[in-house]
Design a protein around this nucleic acid. Sequence first.
RNA 1: GCCCCCGUCGUCUAACGGUUAGGACGCGGCCCUUUCAAGGCCGAAACACGAGUUCGAUUCUCGUCGGGGGCACCA
Length: 489
Amino acid sequence: MNKIRTRFAPSPTGFLHIGGARTALFNWLFARKHQGTFVLRIEDTDEVRSTEDSVQAILDSIRWLGLNWDEGPKDSRLSDGPYKPYFQMQRLDIYKKFLDQLMRDGKAYRCYCSKEDLDEMRRLATLEKRPPRYDGRCRNLSEKQKEDYDASGKKYSIRFKMPDSGTTVVDDLIRDKVSFENNLLQDFVIIKTSGVPTYNFACVIDDHLMEISHVIRGDEHLSNTPSQLKLYEALGWTPPAFAHLSMILGPDGAKLSKRHGATSVLEYKNEGFIPGALRNYLALLGWATKNSQDLFSYDELISSFDIEGCQKNPATFDNVKLTWMNGEYIRKMPITELVKAAEPFLEQSGIKPASGSPSLESAISLEHQKYKKLTEIPGLINFFYKPLELTSQAREKSLSNPEAPGILEDLSVRLEKLPEFKEKAIEGAVRQYAQEKGFKAGQVFHPLRAAVSGRTDGPTLFLMLEVFGRDEVVQRLKESCRLLTAGKI
RNA sequence: GCCCCCGUCGUCUAACGGUUAGGACGCGGCCCUUUCAAGGCCGAAACACGAGUUCGAUUCUCGUCGGGGGCACCA
């Protein structure tokens, strides 16, 4: 059996977006599943729009998602392990070689048409309701004409000679056989006047040279495939297997784009999503198992993935489900890992435990089951790390009872004297107090929570008090009590 | 305009001629509970439409409608 080799080939003209990430993920999963090789190739042949920032953003995104690639140009292995990706602009001499071959075989030709010529051609075609397609006027220029053009310094591009008749069938792993009429295909440009190859040309050469066995890519490339197939044929190569993934749509059914909110992978990182959760969710966009499983462990996802489960119809991106899934992942994280993941977000909101204040670990673990995104953590634990501040809800709902000051006063005395300041002991003391005074549990619990945390919601009460520590609890009870009796609340 | 793809709950999807059309998110209810969550149970919610083929169509064929993609010296 031939070795499975896949690739992700983004063009560095912007950030890595959700659709690209999904394509990368599927290629990565397929390679991993079959113990194959996953290649990263930067298609930077758009000299105008490619940027170094985009390259960096794409690499950062892919690394963050954990989609490590296995190979790079010779001697490109960095000292710390990973390879550099392939860059097409560093392979121009390679493309040149195959261009020469096509020219020699008479399968490609120089085209001296200017941009204006082509625009005019398109304009007329549209006007006459013909397909806007290059008419092949430079196909059979005489040597004399070429010499004249060259002498006048006219620039040329190189076009590939497309057969005029017949059909080309794309045998797609997801869509089965899709056929295209050759006469609708055009003599497409393979080398721009700048001498740089176009996508369709460089892509074919690289996929062949890199021995890519499966080209898994977005649906938008399906219509490029017949042209590429003709190139494989002209070069005498066997094409790889193709699998065209359905698109990812926004909530309104249009192609997912910026106006639908976050589309860049790095934005999701900044919004507090976990790489594993995003991988898991993305995998479900256009792929499913026979039993519609939706939560997968790292290994499970790899072993379950297959092309057969890939969907033909487009999928709508659902932030709500992603968020739920992220919560699932957070809940499964060991607490130390969670604290580490939350660090950048805590730092951002200025949470830094002082000596004597609860550890981040104990504070965060109190509501481990509540976080759906890492960004929510600071807001849910910050009351441990800042001076007491009563929300209006706390004031109106939990502390408005005229009995409240007395209760808080009594509790501060009792808790101060409590031999062991642990969850169970605290609960015992508080319940006992309520019973002695003839209060219902809630009548005591609610003011207690509000007086100490300042809020009406929050972690389980007595564990929260334990985490706060006796001194802080007593002090806060007294403070609240003072505020209440002074009528400041 | 031309070419191509697609069409199951609101969303992601299972089903591969015969099912009470299943699961998940979300939504509603109940339970648990000191709050908010989490968890458990229950519920509402879909085969785009029309012709065929067939004893029988969500499933196969054709058409209609609807959505998407492509038609660059961008990838």
